[in-house]
């Protein structure tokens, strides 16, 4: 089953870091910082069931950043999200990998605050965190440039400098 992926900050989702006052199976409210909506829509990425496109999507998203830092994301089986009856639409993504933008970007639409909370619970209970280290991100970015999926001129100068592309 394919996955939906949302970039996140891994430390906000540590299961061991829950507070005693938190009800069982409830995510801490800080997790919502990773679910910032725009026009009541949440940008997510469709990841193949074998995760073959995960690294490419990570490179696509990391290419928009200013610095070379770990890339954290949350993955959840798409079937779990479908159970919430949320509208999932194929829309163009905003990364520097234009093919990835067309193929794998999705928006969860018509999100109310309540639906977003349901999604955060789903990500908390059914999702998993992944981290790509800065060294891994660097390799993926360089591979993306070498294979023509990313254009080095699109990168921010600070990031290009860190990649030692010159």
């Amino acid at each position: 089953m394919p996955y939906l992926m949302r970039s996140s900050r891994r430390s906000r989702w540590y299961p061991e870091a829950v507070q005693p006052w938190l009800p069982p199976n409830e995510p801490p409210a800080d997790c919502l910082s990773d679910l910032e909506t725009e026009h009541n829509e949440l940008s997510v990425w469709l990841i193949d069931d074998d995760r073959a496109n995960l690294e490419r999507v990570v490179a696509a998203l990391a290419s928009k950043r200013q610095s070379l830092v770990p890339f954290d994301c949350r993955l959840v089986p798409i079937g779990r999200v479908r159970q919430l009856r949320l509208q999932l639409s194929q829309t163009p993504g905003d990364s520097h990998d234009h093919e990835a933008n067309q193929l794998w970007h999705r928006d969860l639409q018509f999100l109310s605050a309540g639906r977003l909370t349901s999604l955060s619970r789903c990500l908390w209970r059914r999702g998993e965190s992944r981290r790509f280290s800065p060294a891994q991100v660097r390799k993926l970015l360089i591979a993306g440039i070498q294979q023509g999926r990313l254009n080095r001129d699109d990168l921010r100068p600070e990031l290009a400098f860190k990649l030692n592309l010159d």
């Binding site: 970039s7 900050r9 910082s33 910032e36 990391a62 950043r65 200013q66 610095s67 070379l68 830092v69 770990p70 890339f71 954290d72």
Partner: peptide, 8 residues
């Protein structure tokens, strides 16, 4: 502020 990884 809300902080985003890799962004100032």
């Amino acid at each position: 502020e809300t902080f985003h990884d890799g962004m100032e």
